[in-house]
Design a protein around this nucleic acid. Structure first.
Lengths: 146, 146
DNA sequence: GTCTGTGCAAACGCTTTGCAGACGG
DNA sequence: CCGTCTGCAAAGCGTTTGCACAGAC
């Protein structure tokens, strides 16, 4: 399915900003982009999409299930392509690197706990915050300087 | 340990706002309060603590380990007393009710996944969003009206 | 008296909205 | 053309900060 079709299928008009943003996420399939990232990238590529439009399009794409939004503890929301399969995140508190993982065991246990508490779960988020390998080594090096 | 001692032990001066907020959280030990909640409650009780002070005290208490901060998807941060034991949350998307749970199996698996990916975890958060029993029943009733 | 803590209001960062003009269908 | 979409700037929201004064020790 082409980008144009994809957008039209959502009942949305096929416009420059929407095409641009959709392509952007597909070309960076494994990145987590904030609204500001998207805005800056389009700026750099001389395709001036206003901030407001970025937010509006991101919201529409999320609503439509094309993108997923995450709220890490960083204060700003980030988006990524929804590849169907749910997954969770480990965020490096030093360099911001994001590692994804998926564990069906944990998922199952979550569902079980929810049931036990009488909840019908519609969404869940597991975030871990830590220091990635590289940043640990970085810190190690700095210590040796003294 | 008295409240006064508790605050003094943090190296902080014992002031009205700090005492007030500490007592507030102890008297509502199982609630999750936002900065605004705290501000409103002190207002209602004719003890006018400025918003800025509320934020500053909450931050200090969190830093000191007296409170824990959570960022649900609601946009505002909430705090609760740190009772030592880590736990996770299920938030009802209809009524806002928060249910806490703790599962050591999940914790272990998380740690294992983090290790496998080379991370040294300093924090983690597992949030589930769903509809609680009462709200499910509520919805059921409404359906029957038609 | 000193130095920390406070309240106020103004600033902040991210996000949303109101509006007049642009553009897709 | 009509109705949606856009860019701009202004407003919104939760949170933080600068400052002069108040209060703890």
């Amino acid at each position: 399915m082409s980008h144009t079709e994809q957008i039209r299928n959502l009942g949305l008009k096929v416009t420059g900003p929407r095409l641009k943003i959709l392509k952007l996420f597909e070309s960076r399939a494994n990145e987590h982009l904030s609204a500001e990232d998207v805005y800056r990238i389009t700026l750099d590529e001389n395709m001036n999409v206003g901030v407001a439009t970025v937010y509006r399009v991101l919201a529409q794409f999320e609503e439509a299930g094309i993108l997923v939004r995450h709220h890490f503890d960083t204060g700003k929301a980030v988006y990524e392509l929804d590849r169907g399969e749910h997954h969770d995140h480990i965020v490096c508190i030093d360099c911001g690197k994001v590692t994804e993982f998926c564990d069906s065991e944990i998922e199952k246990m979550q569902e079980h706990i929810a049931q036990k508490n009488g909840y019908e779960i519609v969404d869940h988020a597991l975030y871990m915050y830590g220091v990635c390998q590289e940043c640990q080594e970085e810190k190690h090096k700095k210590k040796q300087l003294y």
